[in-house]
Write a protein that binds this DNA or RNA. Structure first.
Lengths: 224, 224
DNA sequence: CGAATTAGTCACCAATCGTGACTAATGTCA
DNA sequence: TGACATTAGTCACGATTGGTGACTAATTCG
């Protein structure tokens, strides 16, 4: 988060780090050095010759200790709306952080549930909204839910993650049947006993190329 | 596209205009003023204070006479790959042009079927590939096929457009049943007689909000 | 007129999906 | 120790959706 002010950078790289906290999506914000209770999305300007996603990786790494396992560009933003940098445009990336990852120490960074995000600059607010909506609509194309979970997880946890992202309850049997047909996970030989109740088998994300999903068209998904 | 060289712009706006020509997707390229047979994606730098998509609209309008009915940002590109501008990064937009739109006159612009696109700068090549792949994967979320057709079209034309985008044959009855269930088109009272055979009724794109498509999850679409 | 051609529909069957009820394996507590 | 609560995991039925070939409809051509 360099805060050098000598000359205005041509563009900033902003990072939307998302995780799941207690059944809600949460975004990582950075405390502004100047204001008292002002928060911003982490951002920086690119070093000389650095690729766009490399800058995003560097930012993530500097905050979390390592890069996110998944990252996607959200787009470029710059409708003249204000931004903590004075850059004309900002290129935004979204990254997913598994639950259970140790939180960054120090009072500089904090996770905010989406419902409790404080006021941001207009451009960063738009970036956040676009990132969340993109994550939610790209679920079918990207392994989003898996990247919000640790490497090993129970099927109930996976289902709850899907329910969180879809904001909709799923039926257990349907969910597992669909999962089976998609060849996305494989069981490990470990089990986890979570208090009372039968222990759950742990699975890992292991997509197989089998069956290229030769299905029909789905016109009914068209939103607008 | 302006070719002023005095100072390097901070970023360029590149536009990928796509249409369908004889059963193939085609992209509009602009002849380089310097080289003899060099072609580029249309691009320009933003005027002062102009929003990103406003620049893209201005470029489209200057080429086609009017803006495209549909346009989407593809993203920001700038991994140090070369670009006709010397901008560090380029923000790309895709726009769809209905078949039958009068082609831009003069030898400056031309439509190239995707298979016959000449060599482009590395960055523009990447932009084009990303744009096409985005269009194809976002078909379910955006009315892509409809924006490649004139306002009124026959269902056979619509089906052929879907077949072109999906690179896959569709069964007539299935296609029409899915279309009916999606409430996307409405019939007009006009018909078109295309040579021999029974005349076809013309339809228009008229999505209705009915039935929010309360369907299950589709895990089997997950690609990676 | 009849054949060819394209549009549009129907109906059968298979595959998929929503659902409730079932079994399985553990902890809790009397 | 045994009944109960709790969570995991599966099964099977009926309803819906989807793939498909064959059908009817309306036009041009010769």
């Amino acid at each position: 988060m360099s805060d050098r002010r000598p000359r205005k950078p041509p563009y900033s790289i902003d990072v939307v780090l998302l995780t799941a906290v207690r059944g809600q999506l949460a975004v990582l914000l950075s405390r502004s050095p100047d204001g008292r209770e002002k928060w911003t999305l982490p951002w920086d300007s690119a070093k000389n010759g650095e690729a766009l996603d490399a800058t995003a990786s560097r930012i993530s790494k500097s905050i979390l200790g390592e890069d996110t396992a998944w990252k996607e560009q959200i787009g470029a933003f710059g409708d003249g709306k204000r931004h903590p940098s004075d850059a004309e445009i900002s290129v935004a990336f979204a990254g997913l952080v598994p639950t259970g990852t140790p939180s960054p120490v120090g009072g500089v960074y904090a996770w905010f549930p989406l419902a409790d995000v404080p006021a941001l600059s207009p451009r960063q607010r738009q970036i956040l909204d676009t990132a969340v909506s993109m994550i939610r609509t790209r679920m079918d194309q990207s392994p989003v839910a898996f990247r919000l979970l640790p490497q090993m997880f129970t099927l109930t946890e996976l289902q709850q993650m899907y329910e969180l992202l879809l904001a909709k309850r799923l039926h257990k049997a349907s969910f597992r049947r669909a999962l089976q047909g998609a060849w996305l996970v494989e069981p490990t030989d470990e089990w986890r006993s979570e208090g009372r109740g039968r222990p759950a088998q742990l699975y890992r994300f292991a997509p197989r190329k089998r069956r290229p999903a030769q299905r029909g068209i789905r016109l009914d998904l068209l939103s607008s």
